[in-house]
Amino acid sequence: MTNNLIAFLNSIFFHLFLLAILTIDFSIFTPKPVREKIVPIEFVSLPRMEEVRLKKSNDFLSKRIDDNIKIEKESKKTIEVNKNKLGLNSLESLRKQIEDTKLSKEKKEVQIRISLIQKRINSIWKKPALINEDIQAEIQINLAPSGEILKYEMVSSSGNKIFDDSTFRALSNISFITEVIGMDRKYFEKNFRTFNLVFKSKD
């Protein structure tokens, strides 16, 4: 019981000590020299106020000037960046133009060959007389680069046997599609190695 009491009292004294350290201003025990002069209020003059105001104004203006300079610098930077971009755009458009030219050359050549093939097949296909039926038959052709027809088969029938037979009859009369001879090999492989002829009853 005595020990507990001692322990309790010790705890209280310790807590009080902590409290004292935290709250007491020990600077009262070490007086500092007075650095400030106390000026009676009647000695704060208008010029002094003006000085303060001017200073404030100058500060503000300086800040504005700094900001403007910053903005100008950034604008210059943006212009430079845009100039560069423009240059890049021209390059891009040039590249695109070159690509388009290549494509249109291929397109042109393919279109010419298509027209020639259409003319040839139309000249040999004896379209049967059909009373106003609107039908079509689709035949897949496999060609060799020499134009030789390697294989042809019907991929979509018209539903009319006479019409289907007429398309086969037309193709049986030719062994070579000479209209593809001499074209760029790349174009041939892409477009004419395998293609479809769509025979239509209506013009």
């Binding site: 298509i114 093939i117 259409q118 139309n122 009853s201």
Partner: peptide
């Protein structure tokens, strides 16, 4: 997307 060539006119020649 295979090339498809349309043939619709036919020959003027008779069978």
């Amino acid at each position: 997307a295979k090339l498809k060539i349309e043939i619709s006119q036919g020959s003027k020649d008779l069978a």
